[in-house]
Design a protein around this nucleic acid. Structure first.
Lengths: 143, 143
DNA sequence: TTACAAAACGATAATATTTATAAAAGAGTT
DNA sequence: AACTCTTTTATAAATATTATCGTTTTGTAA
């Protein structure tokens, strides 16, 4: 799907969700989907600031958060403000709440379907495999 | 597996990998695997500092990093020092390098086996699903 | 057990990313 | 066009993490 099409979908989505549509939001989204680099807010800011000199870095942060909650962008590290570790190396799923940053272990009903096969490592050293769901937890939904 | 057993395995692993074994390392590991909270370094520090008043927070950070590279702990958010986003919501795998923090998209040979089934959401709002591999990338391996 | 090199530890300072704040501008609606 | 609510901008503030460096400890071998 090309950029124009995806932008059109974003516009639809904002309207149906009652989220105001701003030029900045669209440009940030376009910059995001045009990049293959999994960019940081800073990186997107750098890309855009030549053409949009008044754009603020805080706006980029805000909008990427909005986009990820709309489901059109993925926050690769929703726990970015707190490093966290897990001593349980067995195969299970983490549900991370975008609001409160809590992490719940999810035990899938059908455990077998969640085995992650090994991949050809291509010179990489593989240490751990994770499945992560992101969303809003039950508690935050009720607030 | 109980704590004693896992500690014994850590000791073996450190010996075989040539990683010095310290009391702090063991205590931090025990605190980690005894917790169900996916604890932060700060949290582990708080747990331990009563019994080990001279323990430094920096030591906790360092050791959790060591443990994750040994493969006995999982760093839930290896990209924690940089927020990153992905505009590609299709099903693919991210390989995150613990050294250089680069993110590579991996296209599995057998795409079907990587479909993540939906789960009962239990009042949660699910927004995105991710599969993440962590390790050391080819470039960093060669350094 | 003593000696030695390499690594880890502890305490603290430094860094830099992210968030908060408040005024101004813009979006959406009647 | 007016009104309300949200977003944006610019800046300041907060704070988690990393770097530094002197000291201590580990692992190994004489």
């Amino acid at each position: 799907m090309d950029v124009t099409m995806k932008v059109r979908e974003l516009i639809e989505l904002c309207r149906s969700e009652g989220v105001p549509l701003t030029q900045q939001r669209i440009e940030i989204y376009k910059a995001l989907i045009s990049s293959r680099e999994h960019p940081s807010p800073e990186a997107i800011y750098r890309i855009l600031k030549d053409n949009y000199p008044t754009l603020s870095l805080a706006t980029v942060y805000n909008n990427l958060e909005v986009l990820s909650r709309l489901g059109v962008a993925r926050k690769l590290n929703p726990l970015s403000d707190h490093v966290r570790y897990d001593g349980d190396m067995s195969s299970h799923i983490h549900f991370v709440c975008l609001d409160c940053k809590s992490v719940e272990d999810i035990e899938p009903d059908d455990l077998e379907s969640f085995q992650i096969p090994d991949l050809p490592e291509d010179g990489r050293k593989l240490i751990a495999k994770s499945i992560q769901f992101t969303g809003i937890c039950e508690k935050c939904q009720n607030n």
